[in-house]
């Protein structure tokens, strides 16, 4: 009886999970046609690379906003018209600014954005190395600094216990 219940529950969750994954595959317009597979691949890659400005933390592929739909349509039309990635990128950035790209270009404006992680990593490594050195040196120091009398007293203590 309880085994049956478990089985039903498992099946139900499998169905629900597959439904959920289906729903997230395409937020909108499931029927997008292309002439070649290459065009489709480019389209799908570009939807991942550009931001929906209405809902700022989603890319064009994942957003349901009307604006994202318009931009998807525009990208598709330009791909079908034979535009290359560079010109589509220029088109989007000219209208919506650098912010539309999820992978900002390396420029003077984005210098801090690009370099901060590397700088922080180096600082972290430097601090780590220094701490390791200091603690290694520290223990040696305390051992050698003991006077013969103290060491003898310590040995005596250990022997007694």
């Amino acid at each position: 009886m309880s085994q049956n219940l478990v089985r039903v529950a498992v099946r139900l969750s499998v169905v629900l999970m597959s439904l959920a994954s289906l729903a997230s595959l395409h937020a909108a317009e499931p029927m997008v046609s292309f002439e070649t597979d290459l065009q489709r691949a480019r389209y799908e890659r570009m939807l991942e690379e550009y931001r929906c400005l209405k809902c700022q933390n989603q890319n064009l592929a994942g957003s349901n906003a009307a604006l994202a739909g318009d931009l998807r349509r525009e990208i598709r039309q330009q791909i079908l018209a034979g535009a290359d990635d560079q010109s589509i990128d220029t088109y989007l950035v000219a209208r919506y600014g650098e912010f539309v790209r999820y992978r900002p270009r390396f420029s003077l404006n984005t210098l801090v954005l690009w370099l901060t992680p590397a700088v922080l990593l180096l600082v972290g490594l430097a601090v780590g190395v220094r701490m390791a050195r200091r603690s290694a040196g520290g223990t040696q120091g305390t051992m050698t600094e003991q006077s013969p009398d103290t060491l003898a007293a310590a040995r005596e203590l250990l022997r007694k216990s």
């Binding site: 400005l53 209405k54 009307a66 604006l67 318009d70 931009l71 525009e74 209208r95 919506y96 600014g97």
Partner: peptide, 13 residues
């Protein structure tokens, strides 16, 4: 109606 002019102006809100 299609939002084409809006797209050219970079309208997002």
């Amino acid at each position: 109606t299609d939002g084409d002019v809006g797209l050219d102006f970079g309208v997002y809100g």
